[in-house]
């Protein structure tokens, strides 16, 4: 599990995740992802197009990131979700907590920037 952060606008960062966000992937991602999100100081859009699997621990990591951002007055949106992952997100009603968008432009529109 890997992630990259790109500053794409003064008030917006793009986080690109790649790999399986299974239990091991979530453990690997958890601390660095949450720490970086915590210091980012801007809205974030997360690209999940290269993530073929997300389990329950992975969902927790994403929610933790969104929660950290929310506490600093910023927002997160997720885009590029593959169908298998979209079904999991739908089952757990993730969109109640984190907006989901079909593509990068729509995600930018949601969070602004």
């Amino acid at each position: 599990m890997e992630f990259e952060v790109h500053d794409i606008a003064p008030d917006l960062a793009q986080v690109v995740l790649s790999g399986r966000l299974d239990a091991v992937g979530a453990e690997v991602l958890d601390l660095p992802f949450t720490a970086q999100i915590g210091h980012i100081g801007k809205n974030v859009i997360v690209d999940l197009s290269a993530v073929p699997f997300v389990g329950s621990l992975g969902i927790r990591v994403l929610i933790s990131g969104a929660r950290v951002l929310q506490r600093s007055g910023h927002r997160m949106a997720i885009y590029g979700v593959v169908p298998a992952v979209a079904e999991v997100f739908d089952i757990v009603a993730l969109e109640d907590l984190i907006p989901l968008a079909p593509d990068m432009a729509a995600a930018r529109g949601i969070v602004g920037g």
Binding site: S56, I59, R60, I63, A66, V92, A93
Partner: peptide, 11 residues
């Protein structure tokens, strides 16, 4: 967002 655990049970 603080009720994260409930998501897994929904799953």
């Amino acid at each position: 967002m603080d009720d994260v655990g409930g998501r897994g049970l929904l799953l």
